[in-house]
């Protein structure tokens, strides 16, 4: 029972960290660009497949593959920003939502057509398991933990200490105030897409690794979990998304613990998260810890 709890906690921490990283990007985009990016999941898919190409076909190691995926996805996010989202920014919330839905469909089906619908996996040994006494951990998960241990502090440092990170948070918090204090809002908007794209590419590779196998629906299945972390942390609140992602991952995994009145059926985890998303949007759109304000 306790071993299961520990195992679930580890899994939850890993899933939660990835949700946190992708959530930071999506949250800043939502806050700064005012776009609910329904194509964000497909950015993860794109990253996962770039990682696959580099790792399996060019036989590079996973770290190289991850970096390549981050760079490629950042470029993709930038390209979409400049060709579609920026020119159409004045079209209104519903139009922008429909446009990102359309972009998501296009991206997902391009991946389907180019890579095929079959199930893929990275060149890691899926059968071996590291036994750490109380918990066991798969190689993919181990790599994910290693990457997270580097990237999470880096992102936190970027947001907290660097001028770019501070500017991002300022623009997300109050666009007009940031603009009159001399921040180039347009340029920060571009940087945010680079950051969000890179983190989405990273998230895609990491999800593909911890799942073991994946197909082009990878990102779409995670999109609403990312949205849930964003709303849970407060839209536009980068630190909030970091915390909320980890909380969401932990709660989802721990809810299946058999010590909890038998535990929730694992298949119902997404339903739990989606219901939480709707409830949060209804009652606390400013996030669990945020204070009420006009977004």
């Amino acid at each position: 029972m306790i071993e299961q709890l520990l195992q679930l906690a580890i899994n939850g921490l890993i899933v939660g960290t990835i949700l946190a990283l992708t959530g930071v990007g999506a949250s800043l985009v939502f806050g700064i660009q005012r776009v609910a990016n329904f194509a964000h999941g497909e950015y993860l898919t794109f990253g996962a497949y770039i990682g696959l190409i580099v790792n399996v076909y060019y036989k590079a190691d996973l770290v190289t593959a991850t970096i390549a995926a981050m760079a490629a996805t950042a470029l993709l996010a930038l390209a979409i920003h400049f060709t579609v989202l920026k020119p159409l920014r004045s079209r209104g919330l519903v139009a922008m939502s429909l446009i990102t839905v359309g972009l998501g469909l296009m991206l997902r089906d391009v991946v389907f057509m180019v890579a095929g619908p079959q199930i893929r996996q990275y060149a890691i040994d899926q059968t071996s398991v590291y036994d750490l006494g109380l918990v066991r951990i798969a190689p993919g998960q181990a790599v994910a933990v290693g990457v997270a241990a580097v990237v999470v502090p880096a992102v936190a440092f970027l947001l907290a200490r660097t001028p770019i990170g501070k500017s991002m948070r300022a623009v997300a918090d109050n666009r007009d105030l940031a603009a009159i204090s001399g921040i180039d809002v347009d340029r920060i908007g571009t940087y945010v897409w680079i950051l969000a794209g890179a983190l989405a590419g990273l998230g895609g590779v990491m999800f593909a690794m911890i799942q073991g196998t994946f197909d082009p629906n990878l990102g779409y299945q995670i999109l609403f979990l990312i949205f849930t972390s964003v709303v849970l942390g407060g839209i536009g609140n980068a630190y909030g998304a970091l915390v909320a992602g980890v909380v969401l991952g932990m709660v989802m995994e721990l809810s299946t613990w058999s010590g909890l009145a038998g535990g929730l059926d694992a298949r119902m985890k997404p339903v739990l998260a989606f219901a939480a998303l709707i409830a949060l949007l209804l009652w606390r759109p400013q996030g669990l810890f945020g204070k009420a304000r006009v977004l």
Partner: peptide, 8 residues
């Protein structure tokens, strides 16, 4: 708001 309703 419109986009939150879309997500919900």
């Amino acid at each position: 708001r419109a986009d939150y309703l879309a997500i919900a």
